[in-house]
């Protein structure tokens, strides 16, 4: 499923788009799937069935647009906690996402050992992440250096929020990757808020991209509410990086339509008028409108797709709720890897 979205588009691109009709529908499908999963997880949390949710609502265009420009199975992801949709493109299923949300024993990410949305899957080349922000950007540089030494052609997609860009590891990673001209795509999902702090409290320059340029890294700002624009920007950068062009930084300007997490009350710090203004640019609504307007798909076809996703998510949640929890003593073990 994932690989089909990344097949070459030569000859088959839909007029006015860099993607085929099938890819555009797939793009929309991933975005809807991520949204419905987040909504279902929040419902489960409100019902007392899940302890915690941290969602990517409002950031689906940035995430799916970027991830579809990569090569699952070849490229590495060093994601951050909001990147559910990125992981879906890299092969995570709705059922797996639900196991993760519920901290179930068989969650492939951490088997209930980490909070939800802390991704990791070695086989899919998704690097395990912690709750500490920006640390993963150095891991990305190390993987890229390893690939360079081994002669493997790939890019490492390292994402974070704009809040992370104030941490030392962000700056150290940009510096290191730039010195060695490593194939890393630093993808910053600037959703306007680090919990309650607006970007003005996080940095004295208008764009994260300004910070990238200080390290000699080509840095672009893209409309993160536009999945196709993000796809094009990331694709161009990744193609260059792959061929030895060094790292790129892409800042996707988007918006966090939900509170920081299920534990956050954003009415204490965020004006409702601002939220309503951004809600008009909801990336799902925007893409849906474009697909119909440009003759990619009719309303009925999209409605059917949405119904299928709805059912997929409903079934995944029901299934995941029935899966075993970890045993208490599963807290032990795997402190060290055995053997060599």
């Amino acid at each position: 499923m994932a690989s089909a979205t990344n097949s070459e588009t030569a000859g088959g691109a839909h007029p006015g788009y860099p993607l085929t009709r099938a890819q555009l529908l797939q793009m929309y499908r991933y975005m809807v799937l991520a949204r419905r999963l987040d909504e279902r997880m929040m419902t489960l949390q409100r019902q007392g069935l899940a302890a915690f949710v941290i969602a990517g609502v409002g950031q689906e265009a940035a995430q799916v647009g970027a991830a579809m420009a990569l090569r699952p199975g070849v490229d590495y992801l060093a994601p951050y906690y909001r990147d559910l949709a990125v992981n879906l493109v890299f092969g995570m299923t709705a059922r797996e996402a639900m196991l993760n949300a519920l901290g179930k024993r068989d969650d492939p990410n951490s088997h209930g050992r980490q909070m939800p949305a802390h991704w990791g899957n070695r086989e899919r080349r998704v690097v395990t992440q912690s709750s500490v922000v920006a640390t993963q950007l150095l891991h990305a540089a190390g993987i890229a250096l390893g690939a360079r030494l081994r002669g493997e052609e790939l890019v490492v997609f390292a994402s974070c929020g704009e809040g992370s860009t104030s941490r030392g590891d962000f700056h150290e990673a940009l510096n290191f990757a730039s010195i060695h001209r490593l194939p890393v795509i630093f993808f910053v999902e600037n959703n306007g808020y680090a919990i309650s702090e607006r970007t003005e409290k996080e940095m004295a320059v208008p764009h994260v991209a300004d910070r990238g340029r200080a390290y000699g890294i080509p840095s672009a700002v893209v409309d993160g509410m536009d999945a196709v624009a993000v796809y094009q920007t990331v694709k161009a950068a990744a193609d260059q990086s792959r061929r030895g062009g060094g790292p790129h930084l892409i800042e996707a300007k988007c918006y966090r339509l939900w509170p920081h997490s299920s534990d956050d009350d954003d009415t204490r710090y965020r004006p409702r008028a601002e939220l309503e203004e951004w809600a008009k640019k909801d990336p799902l609504v925007v893409l849906r409108g474009r697909l119909m307007e440009d003759g990619v798909a009719a309303d009925g076809e999209l409605a059917q797709l949405e119904a299928e996703v709805e059912e997929e998510v409903r079934e995944a949640a029901q299934w995941a709720l029935r899966q075993p929890d970890p045993a208490p003593e599963d807290a032990l073990g795997y402190v060290f890897k055995e053997g060599g």
Partner: peptide
């Protein structure tokens, strides 16, 4: 950087 990059190298 030294330790973080080493983590990436080792993971790879």
């Amino acid at each position: 950087s030294i330790i973080g990059v080493s983590i990436g190298l080792a993971h790879y």
